[in-house]
Write a protein that binds this DNA or RNA. Structure first.
Lengths: 148, 148
DNA sequence: ATATGTGCAAAGGTTTTGCAGGGCC
DNA sequence: GGCCCTGCAAAACCTTTGCACATAT
């Protein structure tokens, strides 16, 4: 089924080529949907799959996939960029992140809570919004439990 | 009046010392309230004021001021950390950022739009929220004007 | 043939760390 | 003295870039 997904994505590549190495990077994201991978992590995972892709190529691939709107670049303030897959045919679906300050794990808030807010802000500040970014910082249930 | 503000902050330093160099870093933030300064920018501004502070000291000072909850560390995805002053006696006042994708300028949304949302998220996801981070990405009025 | 893709090494930038010297309590 | 503060240089990262070679169209 991952093969199928990649097939769907193929026509998005326009003038670029969906090479085996790029395909592998996409596969890695499809197999790790719940994670937010950094360049180095993708590099390591590609090694584990037996592939031989240079780190520079990983960086260039991530940049390309972001440009093609297949990946979202995220910044959790840990000193490296992280990426997540944008589901095809679901471009309007935004979500948010809960970042635990103790265990640093990241949870997803599936709802898009900002639809209404956006128009308020757009009008008040005369600013055309095309995307947003919402993080909640705090403590997850597990970490609060173990405090006790 | 900046002297006064720094006086107010003095008692926050606990076991740490409010040295002349740290005072200067605070001064720089008080004089640039509307900006979001990076370590390098603080470094350059301190030079312009005739001070001689090492870059490493700037980094260590910013880290300390963040720990003392005088500065907020921000991440706009431009590859460096930026900081902004947290107003004393106003800890509950949150605000948000509008980031123009064309001119990269950053505007402030003074309102805190997320008060209600937070309790919804806290209950639904069993996550204790202590802070949040909201960025709107888009195009400012000036850049939309000059498009035409 | 021409354009695109890739690896390697080097370079650039930010941030952290070790160490030695200086200052304050 | 002891603890903190600081500068300098080096190191550690992440990321980008140049160049030469390979590969696909």
């Amino acid at each position: 089924m991952i093969k199928n997904k990649i097939g769907e994505m193929e026509n998005l590549f326009k003038e670029y080529r969906l090479t085996p190495k790029r395909k592998l990077v996409l596969e890695i994201f499809l197999e790790n949907k719940e994670r937010h991978l950094s360049a180095r992590e993708v590099f390591r995972l590609s090694r584990e799959k037996g592939a031989d892709i240079g780190l520079a190529t990983i960086y260039r691939t991530l940049e390309l996939l972001e440009e093609l709107a297949l990946l979202h670049k995220l910044n959790f303030g840990d000193g490296r960029s992280r990426y997540e897959l944008i589901p095809v045919n679901d471009e309007e679906h935004h979500h948010h992140h809960l970042i635990c300050l103790k265990c640093t794990r990241i949870f997803e808030v599936k709802d898009d809570l900002l639809q209404q807010l956006e128009s308020v802000v757009e009008n008040k500040y005369n600013f055309k919004i095309v995307n947003h970014n919402l993080q909640f910082l705090g403590y997850c249930s597990k970490c609060r439990q173990s405090e006790k």
